[in-house]
């Protein structure tokens, strides 16, 4: 690593974190804030370090990650499938797009109370909610990327005697794959946010529940530690999806 990269990638970002922690510490000290309002940064770090070896914390993380993974994979598969159909067939697109547009504007958060009524505090409700959130991101962007595939490719495929299905799967889907992959990465962030939000309103386990419980017992340090864990896992999830997409799309 050259000195410039070292400075730009490691030293300056670390300086940012340290600076934020210092300002945070300064605000707490200056206004003599009680621990409930804002604990000191090192207290949060200590709380996080204390959480890491506990089984309960990892159970909550496991529940959230499981709900996310199940809902996300269902949402991506269904969303890409629907997007492929919408992109390939003009008739289907014109028929389905008013319904899809209407549902798309009912944001996932608005579904939370209903999923609680339908599925209670079980995992199913959260999985459905994540799948719903991911589905619309994937459908809209898959449709768009399929429709933006270079028409020359379609003509070449037709000339080579490919049928409609072969064109859709071997030409259009492959040509659109990089755009779909970047949408999948954006959808991962959306899905992760939806999981925690759903757990917040009604659930029996998960990171959202951990944060709610800490908030009701006024343990603000645990709340912030939970938020940090949520941010780190969210970043890791989206990096993992990005890595997976890159390694699968090597033929580009």
């Amino acid at each position: 690593m050259s000195a410039g990269v070292w400075r730009d990638r490691v030293v300056l970002p670390l300086a940012g974190v340290v600076l934020v922690a210092l300002v945070w510490q300064g605000i707490v000290a200056l206004y003599r804030l009680p621990v409930v309002v804002l604990p000191e940064p090192w207290a949060v770090a200590r709380t996080l370090a204390g959480l890491l070896p506990t089984a309960a914390f990892w159970r909550d993380v496991g529940v959230s990650v499981f709900e996310f993974a199940a809902g996300y994979s269902a949402g991506v598969v269904l969303g890409v499938g629907a997007g492929l159909l919408l992109g390939e067939s003009r008739t289907f697109r014109l028929t389905a797009s008013p319904v899809i547009e209407a549902l798309r504007f009912i944001v996932p958060f608005a579904w939370i109370p209903l999923t609680v009524l339908w599925f209670g505090t079980s995992y199913t409700g959260k999985i459905v909610l994540v799948a719903y959130a991911v589905f619309f991101v994937m459908t809209v962007s898959t449709t768009r990327s399929i429709m933006q595939v270079d028409p020359t490719l379609t003509r070449v495929g037709t000339m080579l005697g490919m049928g409609r299905a072969a064109l859709a799967f071997s030409v259009h889907l492959r040509a659109a794959a990089p755009a779909i992959a970047s949408a999948a990465r954006a959808a991962a962030a959306v899905g992760w946010i939806a999981v925690v939000a759903a757990e917040y309103i009604g659930a029996s386990a998960g990171l959202g529940v951990m944060i709610t419980n800490a908030a009701t017992s006024l343990q603000t340090a645990t709340v912030i530690a939970g938020m940090i864990a949520m941010g780190l896992i969210g970043a890791a999830v989206s990096a993992a999806v990005g890595w997976l997409a890159r390694s699968r799309l090597d033929y580009r």
């Binding site: 730009d8 300056l12 970002p13 300086a15 940012g16 974190v17 600076l19 934020v20 409930v36 309002v37 804002l38 958060f109 962030a189 992760w192 946010i193 939806a194 925690v196 939000a197 917040y200 959202g208 944060i211 709610t212 800490a214 908030a215 603000t220 709340v223 912030i224 939970g226 938020m227 949520m230 941010g231 896992i233 969210g234 970043a235 999830v237 989206s238």
Partner: peptide
């Protein structure tokens, strides 16, 4: 270089996770 990583770190935290803090604040 200093602050964009901080912003990127905050982005994956669901807005709902800020609710307890915002109520306390």
């Amino acid at each position: 270089r200093i602050f964009l990583p901080v912003v990127e770190a905050i982005r994956p935290v669901s807005s709902i996770a800020w609710v307890p803090l915002s109520i306390v604040w």
